[in-house]
């Protein structure tokens, strides 16, 4: 299998994940264009797709739990800064790896995948934290390497998005770098 396809729709189908419900899934894949249209991103992005942003904004709070600020403004700031930082990170990856990340997001945003794997008919934004958490836990322990890889990827993106932010540090006892340097472009908070 080409590395690009590891996490792709074709890879997913080849792995037989949807095989047991082939007729149903086949029908749904047939109208895959009926993805819930993602709303425009909050900021122009270099590499993070609208679908990717929707998914990561749903996954990040579930992975990080009460480490994220509880208040609305603090949480919004944490998510906004996290997405900007991930966008900058993804934009520096080689094009094949960027494409693979986009493919994961696109796959997870397909209606049949959302229904069969995540257990939701609505878009990621509307999906409850409990549903997202249950999907992540089942992916982590899955017998399919593909799903375990997806879990590792989404969890890792959440870690990258949060622990480099100043707001994350007091809670974990990290004093921050010993030398202050100006931030680079790319939404470093």
């Amino acid at each position: 299998m080409d590395s690009r396809m590891l996490l792709s729709r074709r890879g997913l189908l080849q792995a037989g994940l949807l095989g047991s419900t082939a007729i149903w899934a086949g029908g749904l894949v047939g109208c895959a264009a009926r993805r819930v249209a993602a709303p425009a991103a909050v900021a122009p992005r270099l590499a993070l797709s609208p679908a990717g942003e929707e998914i990561l904004r749903a996954v990040m709070p579930v992975v990080l739990g009460d480490l994220l600020p509880a208040d609305g403004a603090g949480r919004k700031q944490a998510l906004d800064a996290g997405m900007a930082s991930l966008d900058d990170y993804l934009a520096h990856l080689s094009l094949p790896l960027q494409a693979e990340a986009l493919d994961v997001f696109e796959t997870l945003d397909l209606l049949p995948v959302r229904v069969l794997l995540v257990g939701t008919w609505s878009g990621w934004r509307q999906t409850s934290a409990a549903t997202v958490e249950s999907f992540l836990r089942s992916a982590r322990g899955s017998r399919f390497d593909l799903l375990r890889r997806m879990y590792a990827f989404l969890q890792s993106m959440s870690v990258l998005a949060w622990f480099d932010q100043r707001a994350a540090w007091p809670e974990i006892g990290y004093p921050g770098p010993p030398i202050e340097r100006p931030a680079v472009s790319g939404g470093q908070a």
């Binding site: 930082s85 790896l97 990258l160 770098p177 340097r181 680079v184």
Partner: peptide
């Protein structure tokens, strides 16, 4: 003097594929 000491932007800029160049099976 240009190193930021911040992890994510440094991985993006100083490492190949952000420090996570995957093997074929990932």
């Amino acid at each position: 003097e240009e190193f930021t000491l911040r992890e994510v932007p440094s991985f993006a800029r100083l490492y190949n594929d952000g420090g996570v160049r995957p093997t074929k099976d990932g």
